[in-house]
Design a protein around this nucleic acid. Structure first.
Lengths: 215, 215
DNA sequence: ATATTAATACCGACCAGTCGGTCAAAATAA
DNA sequence: TTATTTTGACCGACTGGTCGGTATTAATAT
């Protein structure tokens, strides 16, 4: 009178995990349900016990990858006080997250990205809403900038424009890292990025804070 | 003994033109051959008289859009002398090209982009090679920077890193324009972009040249 | 203990729809 | 008439999702 019980959440996680792996390897568009099933070592039909559709898995994978990033940023925001340092940490975080050895994740992120654009206008079933995520990130950065301006640390730039620029640069560089990893010197680009984006924001002396990690 | 003659180049152009329109409207992945045929007001089979495959059309469309941009940049490079002005013109060009009323083109560009990434590792049949394009653009920007440095106008930043950053920022902002056009103030972002990316490069007074168009 | 049983998890063959590409016939221009 | 172009019906490969049946588990009865 009592059935087999499984930890449904754990199983979903198992499937999403497998899916991300396959996505990374073959690209979202080229991933078949059977691929995911095999990677998760379950039958194809079983997937449909936990997810309504391929789309559903896609969304779950996206949200999972995103939530991680959000948490880390939350930590940064609640931590250090100096706005320039906060910015630097966020840039570092983003750059590292992708630039790390997990280049394959970057590719997945790109897929999400492309999909997100494609679904911008149409109903988009509430599945992904990349736009919302971007608006949110932009607001985080803009908030830090405003904060810095209020403290008289930053020049009088439009915070939202600056945020757009910073986020855009982050993303665009990601693309190039993915594509031309062997050509561009990633560490160097990262340093240039931080230098440029943060120094240009500061009022007088760029050395008010030290943009270099002490070694 | 001397049958019907058609301008094959013109017909190809007609098809590519139609294809770009459909790509813009529905996204490359969702475009069917029949859609292109209908848009070009020809039969589906006819397409195959001029293109080997869908892939082939895709590549042709990509190259067509790209060649335009290349030509314009060529003009810029051969024109004005001051490196900062050249940079500014290139940024303006890129930002306008997409930001203009032709937002739909941006979406197509994104599709190319996404596809380009997906095809980075595998053989990629020589069809698209986005990487090559990027390497090329990067080298153009880097060249201008080096030039400016040689003339003692620019600070001693790594030209290639700077170029990566600039191109990345350009692309990333494009994404945001496409996605959140109604939220971000595009003109303002553009201005911030130019200010930031060019001023940070200049040695002392940012006003050595006037980054504002005289009115 | 252990056999029974009911509730659930799991599976993969199958289905129905889709779409890129082909080809034989029709249309067309010279 | 004839060389060439155009065409859309057709083909076949592919794939997301379904469904009937099987396996597994744990509560219950003995």
């Amino acid at each position: 009178m009592a059935p087999k019980i499984v930890d449904r959440e754990a199983k979903k996680e198992q499937i999403v995990h497998a899916a991300i792996g396959v996505f990374a390897e073959k690209g979202v568009a080229n991933t078949k349900m059977i691929d995911i099933a095999r990677a998760a070592a379950i039958g194809k039909g079983t997937i449909y016990e936990y997810f309504r559709s391929k789309e559903d898995i896609f969304a779950a994978a996206y949200n999972r990858m995103n939530r991680e990033m959000e948490m880390k940023i939350g930590q940064i925001l609640s931590g250090s006080e100096h706005p320039a340092v906060q910015l630097q940490m966020i840039f570092d975080l983003s750059l590292d997250y992708f630039g790390h050895d997990a280049v394959e994740f970057s590719a997945v992120m790109m897929d999400f990205w492309a999909e997100g654009i494609r679904r911008k206008s149409p109903e988009m079933m509430g599945v992904i809403n990349l736009k919302e995520i971007y608006d949110q990130y932009r607001e985080i950065i803009a908030g830090i900038v405003r904060n810095g301006q209020r403290q008289g640390l930053f020049i009088d730039v439009d915070p939202v424009s600056y945020a757009s620029l910073a986020i855009g640069a982050l993303d665009g560089m990601l693309l190039q890292m993915v594509m031309s990893a062997e050509i561009i010197d990633i560490a160097r680009v990262k340093e240039t990025f931080k230098r440029t984006m943060i120094q240009c924001l500061q009022k007088e002396k760029p050395n008010t804070i030290n943009p270099e990690k002490k070694k």
